[in-house]
């Protein structure tokens, strides 16, 4: 007989039951299977009504993030064997509205990402004939790490402040802001400061540090936020001590 492992999956079926409940499934335990494979097995062989998001199966698309035993992970790159002998508890990502089963609302997150203006802002655009904006490898390395984010939202689910203060702009969005702030072609930091140095911005963060722990791409949002706090503090003191200086 094949060894199996017990999966307890949180189900939420709004038209049937207003409250979520755990449903148990027995899934074959195969050496090469990740959690996503187990969910696909359930969907194909046991219960076709189970809903969840996935796409690339290789840790790039960022859609299969879930809470597994209370910790946010990408289910496509976490092996079943790690959780021997089970059971494995699978729930939708923390602090997001649940639409159905393991599918969460992403609108709030998308809006936050948009608010930090994650694109290159220039005071004056160069005309095409003037050529491209050149960049050295050193200049690239200033922000490259922060550009690796795949918007999987694991950092939001790891951050208690996101849960406590729903308007907090959150780790990934701040790291993304830094990705552009540290880009030498960008001149938009002041506009981003208008968003991030308010009450919903970086100073809500109390450096729990779990966002960086769970990040599958080693973006280190916690570090991005800390560095932003230093910049924000410098900004504040300059604006107080040098009121006639540049804004």
């Amino acid at each position: 007989m094949e060894t199996t492992i017990n999966l307890q999956v949180l189900r939420y079926i709004p038209e049937k039951d207003p409250d979520p409940f755990y449903q148990e499934y027995e899934v074959p335990l195969r050496e090469e299977w990740v959690i996503l494979d187990a969910l696909n097995y359930i969907k194909d062989q046991i219960d076709g009504t189970l809903s969840y998001r996935w796409s690339c199966r290789m840790g790039v698309c960022g859609s299969c993030g879930m809470m597994v035993n209370e910790k946010p992970i990408l289910t496509c790159e976490t092996f079943l064997e790690k959780y021997m002998p089970g059971p494995i508890r699978i729930a939708p990502l923390n602090y997001f509205g649940v639409i159905r089963d393991l599918v969460v609302e992403t609108d709030g997150f998308m809006e936050k990402v948009k608010r930090v203006k994650p694109w290159i802002i220039r005071d004056k655009e160069k005309a095409p004939l003037e050529g491209e904006y050149l960049q050295t490898p050193e200049e690239l390395s200033e922000y490259k790490q922060y550009s690796m984010c795949i918007n999987c939202m694991l950092c939001y689910s790891a951050c208690p402040v996101v849960g406590l203060e729903p308007q907090f702009i959150g780790p990934a969005a701040i790291a993304l802001a830094q990705r552009y702030n540290y880009d030498n072609r960008d001149e938009g930091q002041n506009q981003r400061n208008d968003v991030l140095l308010t009450d919903d911005g970086i100073f809500e963060c109390t450096l729990v540090g779990e966002c960086s722990e769970v990040c599958p791409k080693k973006v280190d949002p916690a570090g991005a936020i800390q560095r932003y706090k230093v910049q924000g503090a410098t900004e504040w003191w300059t604006s107080v001590l040098l009121p006639f200086g540049k804004k």
Partner: peptide
């Protein structure tokens, strides 16, 4: 609409020091 900037940088500087 632009929100007011926070004064937390001041308190945070004292906190850090």
């Amino acid at each position: 609409m632009q929100k007011k900037r926070s004064n937390d940088p001041f308190w945070w500087t004292l906190f850090g020091a």
